[in-house]
Design a protein around this nucleic acid. Structure first.
Length: 416
RNA sequence: CGGGGAUUGGCGCAGUUGGCUAGCGCGCCGCGUUUGGGACGCGGAGGCCGGAGGUUCGAGUCCUCUAUCCCCGACCA
């Protein structure tokens, strides 16, 4: 991407209507645009981050054998009545509207019910099972109070996966695999060290559900973490009985604030029975489908990461999800500009995502923007170091400069 | 939904006990000088002061209502 063609511009002043670090930085750097409280648009750079996160999640979900689909945002009232979740007194975050003829519709805040109804049509036999599907979808939740920038929005991007199993055992196996996949996702994204699988309330279905909580002061949850065992307990279920049940020791637990980036549920056969979704088993019997669901807050992840990885100069994206890997700055004579052009073309051809700051502005502004945007590698092409065919390379996370030739640079930044 | 704070060009802000043509910085446009950490000079454009109503000779400023935003709390299968 040539920066001269980018619609966004960085700003020096912090928007007064944002308090949260993630929103301040993401807006200053031109990654997001606020539409209203709790509703943000993703600008080109922010979208890249979102897409990068999605791609990692996608790969891990595919590895579980799940297939991607995309469900609708508008949902029918009838879909939700069988589980009694249409009522505002039961689910108080519904956005609802009406068709011209008065028929009520809801905006998707979850897809469990619609997905089950879909399964009712598509899954009839044990031969069709087990099966799992997932999507990246905008969810709408009419939060009484949205807060913390993109971390608690009224419209946000979520990955939700649903697995249909023939039995509790089969569900449990998938559930365990999904747990591993989740940990891998967070590891790959760059927050593995700060993200803990957390025991939380299972609601009406099981004793526990599992949350994936990333430690951050901006988080809304309080959890107790065991750093060695890489496990945590949500405050909502934290008591002596639970601690001993989980084989944890109270004096080894550390109380921290955290943000829930993922949450997985084991519904057993409850949903299948409620909604009448059955399959024909091998012995000819009719049995309810076992359901489990698996969420990851994609846009919230971007916020959590922005919240966690930043310094006084701006954002510091982990390499795997950075909008681009390299930020090229040209300084000096026409020859340097030509060399920068050439480098941009080479990197682009090699599949390296790169921002080329070709704007006619002073170097200081380019340095500042490279830092603010949090791009992992900064490559300066100037008259001085480039004379011998070498570029000046600096990592966002370091202060030292390295000089390397084109081959060395490609080795550094090219995707494996 | 309770409590607190806020709303003045694209962004950040100032605006005195109500007073004359509403200012400043950033950004933007033009010209020139600059060019390794957000340069400088000169000249410009851009605002019915969130909205509605009221008090007054006169309202950005006072009163009422309302909308929106932020924070704390409650809430968050």
């Amino acid at each position: 991407m040539r920066l001269s063609g980018n619609i966004t511009k960085t700003i020096k002043t912090i928007p007064s209507d944002e308090q949260a670090t993630n929103a301040k930085l993401l807006i200053r750097a031109g990654f997001i645009h606020k539409e209203m409280a709790g509703v943000y648009s993703y600008l080109p750079l922010g979208l890249k981050v979102i897409e990068n996160i999605k791609q990692i999640v996608r790969e891990e979900m595919n590895a579980l054998g799940a297939s991607e689909l995309l469900m609708s945002s508008l949902q029918a009232k009838d879909t939700w009545t069988s589980t009694k979740r249409w009522d505002d007194s039961v689910v108080d975050i519904w956005f609802k509207s009406q068709l011209k003829n008065g028929t009520e519709v809801g905006f998707a805040w979850s897809h469990e019910e619609p997905l089950m109804l879909m399964a009712q049509k598509l899954v009839q036999s044990y031969r069709d099972l087990p099966i799992s599907v997932y999507q990246f979808q905008n969810k709408f939740r009419n939060e009484i109070r949205s807060k913390s920038g993109v971390m608690r929005g009224r419209e946000f991007i979520m990955k939700d996966m649903y697995a249909f199993s023939r039995s509790q055992e089969e569900l449990d196996r998938f559930y365990a695999e999904a747990q591993k996949a989740y940990l891998k996702v967070f590891e790959r994204i760059g927050i593995g060290d700060y993200t803990f699988m957390t025991f939380a309330s299972g609601g009406a279905f099981t004793q526990f559900s599992h949350e994936f909580q990333t430690v951050t002061d901006t988080g809304e949850d309080t959890i107790y973490i065991d750093r060695k065992k890489r496990l945590a307990v949500n405050e909502e279920v934290f008591n002596d009985e639970v601690i001993s049940q989980l084989g944890l020791a109270k004096d080894e637990l550390e109380k921290v604030k955290a943000a829930e980036v993922g949450n997985i549920f084991n519904f057993g056969s409850v949903k299948g029975e409620q909604m009448g979704v059955y399959y024909a088993a091998e012995d000819g019997e009719r049995r309810p489908i076992f359901l489990s669901s698996y969420g990851i807050g994609i846009s919230r992840l971007m916020g959590v990461i922005a919240e966690h990885f930043n310094d006084e100069h701006g954002l510091v994206w982990p390499l795997p999800i950075a909008p681009v890997k390299v930020y090229i700055i040209a300084i000096g004579s026409r020859a340097s500009l030509n060399a920068a052009d050439e480098l941009y073309n080479v990197l682009t051809e090699q599949g390296v995502a790169v921002i080329y700051d070709d704007r006619d502005v002073r170097p200081g502004e380019k340095f500042a923007d490279a830092d603010l945007m949090g791009i992992p590698w900064r490559v300066v092409v100037s008259d001085k170091p480039h004379k011998d065919g070498r570029y000046e390379v600096k990592a966002r996370t370091e202060t030292t400069l390295k000089h390397m030739n084109k081959k060395e640079l490609l080795g550094l930044v090219k995707p494996e």
